[in-house]
Simulated assay, not measured.
Amino acid sequence: MRILTLNYGSTNLKWAVFEDDVRSEAGRCEATDDAQLQAAVQEILRSRLGRSGPNAVDAPSTRTSAPAAYSPKAFPADELPATPQPPDAVVHRVVHGGRLERPAVIDAAVLQEITRATAFSPIHNRRALIGIHAAERFGVPQIAVFDTAFHATLPDVARTYALPRELRDRGIRRFGFHGLAFSSTLQQTADVLGTAAADINAILVHLGGGCSVRAVEGGRSIDTSMGLTPLEGL
């Protein structure tokens, strides 16, 4: 199976193609505004599917201008082969999954929950929604994976804020982020140690544009320095 993955940063887009578990292609481009992001997603899909999508796509919550013209500088020729094999699915990284705690095939209900959670992660979730909408008319199944899903195992003592119950009942709690990166780090650590991820007890640290710390016990997230939004961290 061939999977195309799209990872939305605040100013760029990273993409990769996986043949089963092996990465066969990868690249990144600058995409600092909505129009650039739409154009980037559409160009990546056109290059792999061999057919055109819409010339312009409505971004969630607002209408964007038509995508900017494709720039060869954004996608070096060696990153976009001329005759690629089409992917079987497109997988989008979504930072905040809200109540969604596992990967999900994108449908109306999933889109609604991602949109609802955008209030707590306005930059990254919004960009993911733009990418999803830009890709939806290409006829390829789309899947969302969530950074917050890694922390679905947080115990109540770690996920609960010292707030009135009425606020907690409305879903105000600690979620945790950087989950996909931590999941990868956990598996790589297990591989290096020659053991199963489920046997790992560790403190994991993510250092980048955003920074955070995780406590993992038995391969499961049990505490995090992040919370309801990605603004918490270190």
Rank of each mutant, 00 (worst) to 15 (best):
I3W: 09
L4C: 14
T5Y: 03
G9W: 04
T11I: 11
T11W: 04
T11K: 10
D21V: 14
D21P: 06
E25K: 04
G27I: 04
A35P: 01
L37M: 10
E43D: 13
I44Y: 00
L45K: 02
A59V: 15
P60I: 15
P60D: 09
R63Q: 12
T64K: 05
A66Q: 15
A68H: 10
K73N: 12
F75R: 04
A77L: 07
T83K: 15
V91I: 14
R93H: 15
R93V: 07
V94C: 14
V95P: 01
A109F: 06
V110D: 09
V110M: 14
V110H: 01
L111Y: 03
Q112M: 12
E113K: 05
T118A: 14
S121W: 00
S121R: 02
R126G: 06
A128I: 06
A128C: 05
L129E: 06
I132K: 03
A134E: 05
P141S: 13
D147T: 07
A149D: 03
A152R: 14
A152F: 03
A158W: 04
A158T: 07
A158E: 09
R159E: 10
P164E: 13
D169T: 10
R170N: 11
G171M: 09
R174T: 02
F175K: 14
G176E: 00
F182D: 00
S184F: 12
V192M: 06
V192P: 00
V192H: 12
G194S: 11
G194L: 07
T195G: 12
A198E: 15
I200R: 00
L204Y: 03
V205Y: 12
G209D: 12
G210H: 10
G210L: 13
G210M: 08
C211I: 10
V213H: 01
V213N: 02
V216S: 00
E217D: 14
G218M: 04
S221L: 02
M226E: 04
G227M: 06
T229V: 13
E232K: 10
